[in-house]
Amino acid sequence: MKSLQGFEGMGRYLDWYPVFLREMLHFRRKLLKLGYLFSAMVVPVIYLVTFGLGMGRNVQMQGTDYLSFLLPGLVAMSSMNNSYTWVASSLNLNRLYFKTFQVLVQSPISSSSIMIGEVLAGVVKGLFASFLIMAVGFVLARNFSITPLFVTVLLLNCMLFASFGVITGMITTSHEDTSTYNNFFILPMAFFSGTFFPVDRMPEGLRAIVYLFPLTHTNIVIRKSSLDIEALISLAVLLFYLIVFFAYGSRLIRKYSE
């Protein structure tokens, strides 16, 4: 009961808020378990140690030390992974096994309100994982800095992949299916979208495909210190993906039928 004090009044004009609050209450309980905190950090920290501190000590990339190049990419990758995985996995489980998604569908709030609540919860989870990497970055990397552009694209990336997570959570017919989507979309993006090396080092034939990946555009913008034409185009691409994923996710919720 104490956990909700001060929050009850907020939902009065914000239909999406109870959806978000519900996820946050779950998230807060998860945070209290140390295992979760470590699991959110373990993959990016392994990459950081292996590629950044191990292989990358004597490597220069795009005019900077490799660790400073790698860290923004790891933040982007981590935000993608956490926003996507949390939303896709929890929505899938809530729909197919716990049936708590049905409570949302049967309530008189719109499908877009459900979508907003789920996506914002995904954003929080993505940002949380990103902050953990950024904290490491401030300690280890010499040229790591956070600009308004960095924050903007990070938020956009979290929203985009949380929306994609809603789509996956809605269309998969079993929990195992979510890992299939992970293997086909998320994993290739993590490795080929410029997280570990610049996209222009990819074979030319693959480069066109890589530019279709939203994470590629996040990686382009997140390493920019200021807005230029290339960053603008990438932001527009990300915005396009966000709108498409958000609209499709809302439609899937609206058309839900068992």
């Binding site: 009961m1 956990s3 009065r12 109870p18 708590t100």
Partner: peptide
Amino acid sequence: NLDRELTAYENLMIYGMLHS
């Protein structure tokens, strides 16, 4: 289809908010 990790009060509060 209750939220198993939430309390009884939290379950009802969320439900009440969903239904305004």
